[in-house]
């Protein structure tokens, strides 16, 4: 139980840190890193809850996280291509950021 709380708390902390950084930083790359760390926090919470003190861990959250990782990376790739296109068009005007 305490292992779950310890690691689950770390997941919550990662999620909140990511949310904070996502809100306060302007550059696209920093926002992407923030949102990825936020997602990692959610994954970490799920993995922590799957741990059952000695017994084999619950495989269902593991499978959910596995699909989640792949979706997160494909979304990151799409966002980076959007960012590159934006740069090629001259970037975001200063007053619209």
């Amino acid at each position: 139980m305490s292992t779950q709380l310890l690691y689950g708390g770390a997941g919550v902390a990662l999620c909140v840190l990511g949310l904070w950084a996502f809100l306060v930083h302007r550059p696209l790359l920093r926002k992407l890193i923030a949102i990825n760390i936020m997602g990692s926090g959610v994954f970490h919470l799920l993995i922590a809850l799957a741990e059952r003190d000695g017994a084999p861990p619950d495989p269902v959250p593991h499978a959910l996280v596995l699909t989640g990782i792949v979706v997160a990376v494909s979304a990151t790739a799409l966002a980076l291509v959007f960012g590159r296109r934006l740069d090629e068009q001259g970037g975001v005007p200063e007053d619209e950021r």
Binding site: M1, L5, V12, C15, V16, L19, L23
Partner: peptide, 24 residues
């Protein structure tokens, strides 16, 4: 605004931790 966001995020984190502890 930065300070406000940080405070709100910390409050959210505390709330989530409390929910996690009671749920566990």
């Amino acid at each position: 605004a930065r300070l406000l966001v940080a405070l709100l995020a910390a409050a959210l984190g505390g709330l989530l931790l409390w929910v996690l502890a009671t749920a566990l």
